[in-house]
Design a protein around this nucleic acid. Structure first.
Length: 262
DNA sequence: GACAACCTGACC
DNA sequence: GGTCAGGTTGTC
């Protein structure tokens, strides 16, 4: 996509573009060239030669798809189609229609990016330790909080806590220094492995060419309730933590400070 | 911290 | 028919 010019913009769902309104978004994209791609937390960033930035959030079911063969079928879930120079297309598929697009001067003009915590792959171990120690929330809730760290979601939080052997309801400020360091290392390891595998296509996620990521096969607890833990043989449980389905192994992820209270 | 809301489809 | 979903906000 980098280097291509945006020659056509068709928005089929008026709820997609959050900012700016009134046709300014389409005008801001038309005849501009995509000069670089980036990401901040869960926002995709497309930098244009006008100096402006197109920020896209996929939310639950968004797929940003790119193809060079023919125009995509404008089906029910296709919320927008862009025609790029050379005849390729970029389109946004999103059944639940939660995805959001913005066009701004700088990424920080998107409120959630401005308030976002550090990138989990950029924060230092020391800073991570400090930040965790300042909080007394349940770890699952804390790691999902984008103002704490930008980019972690439900799958990778479940997997990182499992690998670190920490119960999702454990309070952040109850962790030992060693616990926090182990957690940091596993967060990084899970993310790197998942990126390497092209992501987790558990349900709707697809790569930009429409193919599935392979990391769903490597998940050890997420979506595996009732199955045996590969490490200790206990059955994986599904509970609710901070309103999200949460998978963990009762054998590997014990929580001393919660014993008897759950 | 709990819960409804935003939406739609898949699966039991 | 009920439940659930790689997410986030707003309200109580």
């Amino acid at each position: 996509m980098v280097g291509k010019r945006i020659e056509g913009v068709e928005i089929f769902d008026p709820l997609l573009v959050k900012k700016p309104g009134g046709g300014a978004f389409v005008r801001g994209l038309l005849r501009k060239r995509i000069v670089a791609l980036g990401r901040r937390g869960k926002f995709l960033l497309l930098f244009l030669n006008s100096g402006r930035v197109w920020a896209a959030h996929l939310r639950m079911t968004g797929r940003m798809l790119f193809g060079s063969e023919g125009r995509p079928e404008p089906g029910k879930a296709v919320r927008a189609i862009l025609t790029l120079s050379g005849g390729s297309h970029l389109w946004f598929w999103d059944t639940r229609r939660f995805g959001e697009w913005y066009l701004v001067g700088k990424p920080e003009e998107v409120p959630r990016i401005r308030g976002m915590g550090p990138e989990p792959l950029e924060i230092s171990r020391e800073e991570f330790v400090q930040r965790v120690r300042q909080r007394n929330r349940q770890l699952k809730a804390l790691l999902l909080d984008q103002t704490f760290l930008g980019g972690l979601g439900n799958i990778y939080v479940c997997e990182a806590l499992y690998r670190a052997g920490i119960h999702p309801k454990r309070k952040a400020d109850s962790l030992s220094l060693c616990n926090i360091k182990v957690l940091y290392d596993h967060i990084q390891a899970v993310l790197k492995e998942a990126i390497q595998a092209g992501g987790s296509s558990v349900r709707s996620y697809r790569r930009s060419d429409g193919s599935e990521g392979r990391f769903a096969l490597k998940l050890r607890v997420y979506g595996r309730d009732g199955k045996r833990c590969p490490r200790c043989g206990h059955r994986i449980k599904r509970i609710e933590v901070s309103g999200r389905g949460t998978f963990y192994c009762p054998g590997c992820q014990r929580s001393p400070n919660l014993r008897g209270s759950q």
